[in-house]
Write a protein that binds this DNA or RNA. Sequence first.
DNA 1: CTGTTAGCGCATTCAG
DNA 2: CTGAATGCGCTAACAG
Lengths: 347, 347
Amino acid sequence: MTVTLADVAARAQVSPATVSRVLNGNYPVAAATRERVLRAVDDLDYVLNGPASALAAATSDLVGILVNDIADPFFGIIAGAVQSEIGGPGGRAGGERLAVVCNTGGSPERELTYLTLLQRQRAAAVILTGGAIEDAEHAAAMAGKLRRLAEAGTRVVLCGRPPSPETDAVALTFDNRGGGRRLTAHLLDLGHRRVGYIAGPRERSTTRHRLEGHRAALAAHGVEDDPALTVHGPYDRRSGYDATVELLRRAPELTAVVAANDTVALGACAALRDKGLRIPDDVSVAGFDDLPFSVDAVPALTTVRLPLYEAGARAGRIAMGKEEPPPGGVATVHGELMVRGSTAGPR
Amino acid sequence: MTVTLADVAARAQVSPATVSRVLNGNYPVAAATRERVLRAVDDLDYVLNGPASALAAATSDLVGILVNDIADPFFGIIAGAVQSEIGGPGGRAGGERLAVVCNTGGSPERELTYLTLLQRQRAAAVILTGGAIEDAEHAAAMAGKLRRLAEAGTRVVLCGRPPSPETDAVALTFDNRGGGRRLTAHLLDLGHRRVGYIAGPRERSTTRHRLEGHRAALAAHGVEDDPALTVHGPYDRRSGYDATVELLRRAPELTAVVAANDTVALGACAALRDKGLRIPDDVSVAGFDDLPFSVDAVPALTTVRLPLYEAGARAGRIAMGKEEPPPGGVATVHGELMVRGSTAGPR
DNA sequence: CTGTTAGCGCATTCAG
DNA sequence: CTGAATGCGCTAACAG
C-alpha cells in the first residue's frame, strides 16, 4: 500500500527517527546517512504524511488567509504576495507552506467559521485582510477567536485592517482616512463644491474611514456636507453604476464623484458616459486602491495607490517570523495620491 | 491545556467514539445524547484536531487549487467559484472544506512541487486551472503525479486545461481554438487584412490553441499568415503594450490587433493611444476571456467570453462528487463572441 | 444506538 | 550522531 517512513527506514537501513531527522533537517545527521535516506525516499517515491506529521508535531504547514472576495484583484494581489513569502526555510519538511485562502464574502459568520476551521487545522499562521466588520458583538467574538488561536501557537497578522483590541495580533493598517482626505481635498482644490460620494457597505471600517477622510476634507475647506450626496453600496461595479444614477437624480449639478474604490469608480464612469456626460469635462471621477486596470481606464483614473503587494508580503514575512513586527504591533501603511486624467476643474 | 475529544466525552458522560460520531454526523446517535455532547463541546470550547482526524481517517478536508497567478481575475474568479462549491454536506465534521490555493507562476517545477505538497496533505481533491505547459517530459511527470494522487484517493479535475493523457482526471477544457477562430473571423469579415496577433507565452496549450484558431480563420479567409505579425509575450498588460509598439514598427499599416487575453488587450490599447491612433477608427482591438473590466474599457472591448465562474463551480462540484463527470471524462466549454466598440471596419 | 479496542504515521524524548 | 520507545488525538471496526 502507501509507503511510510518505516519503509524508507528499512530500505535505508536506519531507524525511522533518522529518516524523520533527515526530512525535517532540524538535526545533525551524517552526510553519508542522509544520502542513503534520500536515495531511499527517491526510490520508494515516498511522500511524507502531512496530517501525521502535524499531529505529532502539534503544528501544521498551513497558513490561512481570510479575504472578502478572491476574485477581486485587491485581495488577489495581497494573497499572492503573502504566498510568495510563506515558503522558504523554517517550516517543517523543506519549509514549504501552503496558503489556505478563505473567501468570507464579507459575512461575519463565515469569518468566524473559517477561523475555527483554521484553528482546527492547527494553522501555523492566519492573516486577515481587508476592512473589519464594525459590530461590537462580532468584534468581541473575533477577538476571542484570535486570542485562542494565538494561545494555540498560531501567529495572527491583520493586513489592511485596524488593530483588534484585547488581542496581540500584529496589524498593518491602511491609512484609509488620510487617503480619503487627500483625494477629496484634491477635488476641492480644483474648485469642486458639489462632490458626490459613493461609499462602501455600512458597518465596515474601510468604508467608515474613507468616508471620514472625505468629510474631513469638506470640513477643512468649509464645504457643506450634504447627506444627499452620499450613497452606500457594495464594492462592485454595479453599485458604482447605480449609485451614480441616483446621485445624478438627486443632484444633477454635481461636478465630481468620489468612489469607495476603483471598481466602483469604473461603474460610475460607465453611468456618466451613458448619461452623455464627459469625464472629466462635465464630471470628475476618483477612485481608491489603484488596481492594475485603473491606469488603463479612459481617461486614466485619479486614485489613491495602496501598496497592496508590499503590505501583503510584509504581512507574510511577519506571520512567518522572518521579519520583526512593528513597534507596538501596529504599523500604518500610507497611500499615495495618483492624479490622472479623470479629474479636472469643474465646468 | 488544549481540550481533546476525551475531555468532551468525559463531560458529556459518553465514550469518545460517540463524540466523534456526533461531530462527524455520519452515524446514528440518539437525539438526547447528541444534545449532551454538543453542549459539552460548547462548554469546553472544543475544536476538533484536524490533523489527528485526517490521520485516523486517511483523508483531509483540504482541496487544492493550482493557479498561475491568483492576482489575475481570470484565476481569482475560478478559484472563488470552486470554493463556493466545496463546502456543504458530505465532508468530515460538518462538511466544511478548505481551499488551498497554489500560485505556480507558470513554473513547471512549482506545479509539480505543489502537487507533492497536496499529496502530502492527503487532499480530498485537486483542481488544476489554466493552460498546460507543453513539454513532453513535464507532461509525463505531471501525469505520473496525477495518477499517484488518484490512487491515493484524491479526486483530480482539470479546469480550463486540456485532458492529461494516461490519466483519468476529469477535464473541463475551454474551446480556445474555436474562440480564437471566431474572433479573428469577425475582424476579417469586417474587412481587415493586416491583423497583428499578440500571443501568450510559448509552450502553453492556451497560447497555442488561440493562435491556431487565429490562423485557421486567416486560412479560411484566404489571408496570408505573415509571421512578422505575430509576437509572443506573457499574459500581462506590459506585454500588450510592448508587443503593440513592436507590431507597429514592423507593420505600420496594420488595421487590427488581436491580443492573447483582455489584460494584454488593455496594454495594446494604451500603446495605440500613446501613438496617437484611435480605437477602432485607426486600429481595431480584440481580447479574450471577457474579464469584468473589459466591458468598462473605452471603447468597450470586443472579446470572447469564457464562463469562468460556471466552469469553476462545475469543477468544484465534480471534485466533490456532487455532480457526475461528463461522459468520457472530458467536456468542452465554449466561449461566446462579444462584439463591442473596440472593433469596426478598417479605415 | 453505544462502548471498547486498536492503530493511523510521525516527532520526539531519552539512552547510548 | 543514531536507535528504541512513547504518545499526539482521533476514527473505525468490532462487539454488545
